[in-house]
């Protein structure tokens, strides 16, 4: 039994993990994720791809809301900006997909600075309302700029060829998403243990104290906005390719709420939580559908007629129930379970 952790150097303190077991199982998981697309059917594979894309978006929001404590209801704004940046560059101008992804990272970052700058003076609720307003303004700008965005008609996006490797097939596209999600995961993990990440957390916990410690609030808040928007924008580009069609309707405001629901369900501020929350939220509607149709065949029909509405109700319920009964999210539950396992039969 591990009876405590003794850390002697700073390097040990900030290491990603001190456990060989964690590295081993992570490698196994990675291998499974790489091989799984070859064996899953198309329906299950679409869920895997969606989880990878959503995880990236959730990690992006986690930097802003989880680490820095800036509540954003406008995450869908960054998502849609990234999707359009990619779609316009690749489908309209015929540029290389690399340029598309680069733009999908840069354009939302610039947009986030525009939102972030006036929001610097605001906290909590006011910030949430401003970011929400921003996402509506973005939608309107996209609809008005018809020459660039085709207005309400949207833009068709094809699966890209990267370095001569086509990702037209679902398996190849899923691998592409896996690469992006992994990059986002390591970026977040490493950011969290660097000076910048510690500054973000300090701002979240007490901004006045953080300022007294020499953290420049304005530049760090803007940095949090930009990092988050970059990651979310790339997720948006992938989501656009996944939908194979980019339009304002494809990115409803509900996505902003879904992203916050993921963080709450997983556990706010935890990278592992963002991943667990993503898996939970993406699979929740499907799992509910399976349970319902197993219990009574007739209720399955509800999901075909009111699928979108039922999904929203589920998200709402999950948000409320988790905040009420498990505010630390799935990660909190996992930690409790681990402690109970190690200490059994003692309480602590």
């Amino acid at each position: 039994m591990r009876s405590g952790t003794y850390k002697e150097t700073y390097a040990q303190l900030v290491a990603l993990t001190d456990s060989r077991l964690v590295w081993f199982w992570s490698a196994v998981l990675l291998a499974v994720l790489f091989v799984a697309p070859y064996y899953l059917n198309a329906y299950a594979l679409s869920f895997l791809t969606l989880i990878l894309i959503t995880a990236m978006g959730a990690l992006g929001l986690n930097i802003l809301t989880g680490f820095t404590g800036l509540i954003s209801l406008g995450q869908v704004g960054f998502l849609v900006t990234g999707a359009y940046a990619y779609a316009i560059a690749v489908s309209k101008f015929g540029w290389s997909p690399f340029a598309g992804f680069l733009l999908a990272a840069l354009v939302p970052a610039v947009a986030s600075l525009i939102v972030g700058a006036p929001s610097l003076r605001l906290k909590g609720l006011y910030l949430a309302i401003t970011t929400m307003a921003f996402s509506f303004i973005i939608n309107s700008v996209i609809l008005e700029a018809r020459s660039l965005t085709n207005g309400a008609r949207g833009i068709r996006v094809r699966h890209p060829d990267l370095l001569g490797v086509g990702t037209a097939g679902d398996v190849a596209f899923s691998h592409l998403c896996l690469v992006f999600a992994l990059a986002a995961l390591f970026a977040t993990l490493n950011l969290r243990r660097s000076r910048v990440g510690r500054a973000f957390v300090a701002i979240r916990d007490n901004d006045i104290a953080a300022r007294a410690m020499g953290i420049n609030l304005q530049s760090y808040k803007l940095l949090a906005f930009a990092t988050s928007a970059t990651m979310t924008g790339l997720a948006g580009a992938l989501y656009g390719i996944y939908l194979s069609f980019v339009s304002v309707e494809g990115f409803p405001f509900l996505l902003s709420i879904e992203a916050l629901a993921i963080l709450i369900v997983g556990g706010l501020g935890s990278t592992l939580g963002a991943i667990l929350g993503t898996v939970f939220i993406v699979l929740l509607p499907e799992a509910t559908r399976l349970v319902f149709s197993a219990v009574s065949g007739g209720a399955g029909g509800l999901f075909t007629t009111g699928g979108q509405e039922l999904k929203s109700i589920l998200y709402g319920l999950v948000i409320i129930l988790f905040l009420r009964f498990q505010p630390r999210g799935l990660v909190g539950a996992w930690h409790d379970l681990k402690r109970a396992w190690v200490n059994w039969p003692l309480r602590y």
Partner: peptide, 14 residues
């Protein structure tokens, strides 16, 4: 506030 957002989504869809 997140609870009121959750409530909003539920009421809206119901």
């Amino acid at each position: 506030v997140m609870v009121t957002i959750g409530l909003a989504v539920i009421l809206r869809s119901s």
